[in-house]
Amino acid sequence: MTLAPSVQQVISELENAEQVFKSVDGSSGGALAIHAAADFLLREGVPPKLLIPLYSVLGNIVDHGDESNLKPIMEAMQWGQAAGAVTVLKNGGISLPEAASKVARAAGQAFSAQQIIEFRKNIHKQRARPHSRRARPEAVAEYEERVKAAKTRPPELREGIVLQLIAKICAEGKKG
C-alpha cells in the first residue's frame, strides 16, 4: 500500500521525534511529535482554530525548557500571524498602513500597527534575529505559513478570513 506524501512526511517527522525522545530528552521529542501532528492536521485542512490547543501545549513544553528571555512561543506566533495577515491584505490591494491598522484592531490592540510594520520589515530584511524578544524563529515560520495558506483562499474572502483568524488567535492567546 502506497501512502500519500503528506502521510509519509508526518511519519518521517514522528520517527525523528521518537529518536529525539529516546536519545536526547522526552520533552524535546514530545514537542517535535506534537508539532508534526499539528502541522499534518493543518496541511490536511483542519481549521487552525481547532489546533490552538495543540500549539498551546507545544508552546508550554517549549517555554518550560526555554531559559532565555524570549517571549513565550504563543505570543511569538501571534506576531508571526499578524505579520502574515498584513502581507495577505497588502497583496489584496490594501495599503500597508491600512492593512496593519486592520490587523491591530482585529488583534484587540495586542500590538500597534507600527509595531507590526516594523516586525514585517525586520523579517523581509532578515533582521528578525532568533534572539529578538518578538522574532522567535517560530514567529517567522508562522508568518510564512500564513502567507502561503492565504493564497489558497478566494481573493474576495481573504480579508474577512484573515481578520477573523487574527482575532481568534489573539483572544485564545490571552486565555492561555
Rank of each mutant, 00 (worst) to 15 (best):
P53T: 08
T152M: 07
M74L: 15
I11K: 04
P137W: 03
P137E: 14
I73N: 10
A38N: 03
A141F: 03
I61A: 05
E98G: 00
L70E: 00
T152A: 14
V57K: 01
G80M: 02
A36Q: 08
G108K: 13
P155H: 01
A38C: 02
H35L: 12
V10M: 10
M1T: 12
S68N: 02
V86M: 14
P97G: 00
Y143Q: 05
L58E: 09
A17D: 04
I11H: 01
M1Y: 10
N122Y: 01
E18I: 08
S101Y: 00
G30K: 06
E142Q: 14
E98A: 08
L50N: 12
R158Q: 14
E156Q: 07
R136P: 00
Q81W: 15
A150E: 03
K22R: 15
S28R: 03
V24K: 10
S12A: 15
L14W: 10
S68A: 06
K22V: 13
V10Y: 12
F21T: 06
V24F: 02
A76E: 09
V88C: 14
Q126M: 11
G160L: 07
S56H: 13
E67S: 05
P53A: 10
A36I: 03
K71S: 15
S132Y: 08
Q164Y: 05
I161T: 06
A171L: 13
G80T: 07
A104C: 13
N16F: 11
G92E: 11
A141S: 06
G160T: 13
A83Q: 08
E144Q: 14
G173N: 11
M77S: 02
S12W: 12
Q81D: 13
V7R: 09
S6Y: 09
A83F: 11
I123V: 15
I169A: 14
L3T: 13
R129T: 07
S56L: 05
F111T: 14
L54K: 04
A141G: 01
V103S: 11
S132M: 06
E144I: 06
P72E: 10
G45L: 11
A150V: 00
R158L: 08
A4P: 02
L50V: 07
P155I: 08
V20Q: 09
G92T: 00
Q109T: 05
A110M: 10
I11E: 10
S95D: 12
L3C: 05
L42M: 06
K125S: 15
K90C: 03
Q115E: 15
S23W: 02
A135R: 09
P155W: 01
A33M: 13
I117L: 04
E156D: 07
R120T: 06
I117F: 04
R129Q: 10
L89D: 07
T152L: 11
D25S: 11
N122W: 03
E144D: 11
A38Q: 00
L41Y: 09
L96W: 05
Y55I: 13
L32T: 03
Q126Y: 12
N69H: 10
E13Q: 15
M1P: 04
H124I: 03
G173S: 14
R134F: 12
K174P: 09
Y55F: 15
Q114N: 15
A135N: 04
Y143N: 14
V140K: 01
G26L: 12
H131V: 11
F119R: 00
E142G: 01
S112W: 08
E75K: 12
A150M: 05
V162R: 04
I116G: 02
S56R: 13
A17V: 07
E144C: 08
I94A: 00
